[in-house]
Amino acid sequence: MGFLENIGAVILGTLRDLAPLIGLILFFQIIVIRKRLANLKRVAIGFVYVVIGLSLFLIGLQSALFPLGETMARQLTDPEFLGLVAGAAAAWDDYLWVYLFAAAIGFGTTIAEPALIAVADKAGSVSGGAINPWGLRLAVALGVSVGVTLGALRIVTGVPLHWILMAGYAIVIVQTFFAARTIIPLAYDSGGVTTSTVTVPLVAALGLGLAANVPGRSPLIDGFGLIALASVFPIIAVLGYAQLTARLTRKREPGASTERT
């Protein structure tokens, strides 16, 4: 039970993350708004739950999943595992396992991302049920999966990052013109929500491992960019998901008014 020893350290770390937020809120609540917070006790208990919950979540991940995932990322990008001759130039299709792992880990980590769960539930309640939180999360996870896979492919082939990113932006702009207006802000937000506590460590380990092992790539320069791609493609996926569901509901109820919300 070695990991139980760092519980205190993780809780302290979470508190330190939360401290500026609490300080800020106290300052504005007391100095600027000058009003006692309603349900102060309930809110305080909620904060305690958030700190303990997030700490337990991180401790569990760090002891159970991260070490394995990081080892896997290293092993899968090892030229020996891939059957490559050290130092020889590699073709892009020598790394098929890496792409599969990138796609799977991008999807799996995004579904478990706590911030995304929170935002998706909020979107579900704000939209009065028109947006299905689970469908939204699946769409975002699919987008991250595509983004991380393209990022891995980019590290192997050496295509400049900004070309892929610009292509992604172009798709987003075209989709925006055809999408229902109500989904657009949420779709844009989902890009930034995805890459937090769970996704970043595993995806960064994959990028660094890959950039260190592919000949001609520098881990310092080519290791970057996976996170960026993982935040653009969810936007495309959510916009696409909204268009798909709008089309499906239209087909299902012919003649019915197409409520595009």
Partner: peptide
């Protein structure tokens, strides 16, 4: 055991968000 921590922590976090943040 780590997975049990993750499950419990995630549920507590989401509950705390609803109550606090």
């Amino acid at each position: 055991i780590g997975l049990a921590f993750v499950m419990f922590g995630l549920a507590l976090f989401v509950k705390g968000l609803e109550m606090g943040l």
